[in-house]
Write a protein that binds this DNA or RNA. Sequence first.
DNA 1: GTTTGATCAGAGCC
DNA 2: CGGCTCTGATCAAA
Length: 654
Amino acid sequence: MDGGLGGNTVPTNTSDKSKVLDVKPLRTLVPLFPEPPEGPPFVCVPPNGPLPSGFSPFFPFSGQGSQSTPDLNQNCFNSTAVPLRSFRAEPPASGNGTHKHKSAGPSSVKKKAKRRKDSESVLTSLMNFNPGISLSERDDGNRELVESVLLRFDALRRKLSQMEDAKELHLGGLKRADLKAANMMLTKGVRTNMKKRIGVVPGVEIGDIFFFRMELSLVGLHFPSMAGIDYMAIKGEPESERVALSIVASGGYDDDDEDPDVLVYSGQGGSASRDKEASDQQLVRGNLALERSFHRGNEVRVIRGLKDHVHQMSKVYVYDGLYKIQESWMEKGKSGCNMFKYKLVRTPGQPAAFATWKSIQKWKQGLSSRVGLILPDLTSGAESTPVSLVNEVDDEKGPAYFTYSPTVKFPKSFKLVQPSYACNCHDACQPGNSNCSCIQKNRGDFPYIAYGVLACQKPMIYECGPSCPCIRNCKNRVIQSGLRSHFEVFKTRDRGWGLRSWDRIRAGTFICEYAGEVIDETKARQEGGDGGSGYVFHTNRLHESFKWNFETESTEDFDIPSPVIISSKNSGNVARFMNHSCSPNVFWQPVMYESNNEAFLHIAFFAKKHIPPMTELTFDYGIPQSDGTGADNNPAYGKKKCLCRSAKCRGYFY
DNA sequence: GTTTGATCAGAGCC
DNA sequence: CGGCTCTGATCAAA
């Protein structure tokens, strides 16, 4: 792959590599806003908080939705909200600062009981939020509702998980924040498509992915929390005529899958368990319903439960659309007992979903090559995972020349000097350890939960840095560990080059940081003006607010000491290819960590929601705000027509 | 180091 | 209310 590339393409020669990894500042810039060393932080305009005083909201930001659809952007939940921190502050015991959990002596039982009571009161307070969904919205959903329910479920799940990690909450002996969160959502009525139905579920799209069975339930795609077959009675017909609505094919019965459009599904029951021998399956419940659906010919929703190759142990559920049962029979299973089998065939004309997963698997194994592949790794090894360069739409051989650099370069004078906060943890930092100074810096919260998922947005996230003695894979080192997904820079139909991922991305997952050179306003204008490369990131733009955190957890302004502008025009990473969308699936969050007693600011991108593979990654570029110098409304950064095609498109972006 | 199996407490629904 | 079920986290074992 070294020939055929013109001068206007990605560097492929390895001689660039030293340059690639050279993080020395190119030049020295005067700080934009010199700040007193210990002064209160200068808080810049929030990308997702209330508008600062002095600005009146203009069209895209003024709440337009007045239906009962929960507008999570409105702070309507704050009235009854109990600040969570007040619970957290409750001492776990009569500690004198040291929080050892070793409880000896006669009081241990009491403590346990007290702890459970604490957990109950914490849960009760967590439940104190406004469901914000009308009865009819519970019955019938739409895209907005489905996304909102999933967003809110996961925010709660992350919250519970984080609290459990920190031992502030005990959910029975079992770590099942998913069940608890779903239980709370169902209790509060935060769900949609509750009305059972055959076929399409409004708001759920083919290709949508889920990480918990309860998510399927909350949006009405498949109700049972465990069972693989969902069914319902037809009005005016006897119960024995119940038809199948959906199945979850999780591979538990050794079904093979050659053709992605065909599924052989085993009936339920009969399998051996702890205190039961294997037995013949009976034509009852789900099996009977599938049999009825076979004869009636109704479509059945299929959810493919797949082994998640990103996290070997877990599973991911892919909604693969509608199928029809073509055949049913009985055969002897491995145990020698009778099993029902159903052959389902996918209704033609539906967008690819599971098939895409299969293709990607083949690309990864090298069994079939990616169509339109220009470069297997445009980073030339600068990242730990390859980034493919692909063009399936025209003849362009690559984006304009730039140097791939995986991180951001600060000019010398722009280092953000702070007192050291390095921790003293010698293994990995443990959530709930109030002695860890990195956790203290994060206001007592461990910023990440299992799988490195961001728990919630914060004014600033502090990661452990080189000055911390904790181990390299301490859970508080996420963004510094580099890319986690196999990305692909691809040519879009009408928006130049874009970014997407071969791997599914779970909500809260770190995507990449915005790499490039930190520049000043003057330089930014030049870059924006000289043909509108658009490869510039600003921290101080106005962004449409959105609610990502748990219900009553406020979304605060970012705590960025002074506005930062990063240019990725000449050097940058995959972030420079992320296009704008008015309904983005990615958001940014400032993150700091120390290096040589200096803290550096990083702009980190995280997934807002679960993102299926091959879905374009986009974030909201925001709108230049008035800075009082008059340099705002005549956007030197050029107003561009927005092609994001989302229902909430503002029509343009900068 | 990886991957699989066994175990266990669950959730909603019928 | 009890039984049913293609869960999901954890730990032991291969």
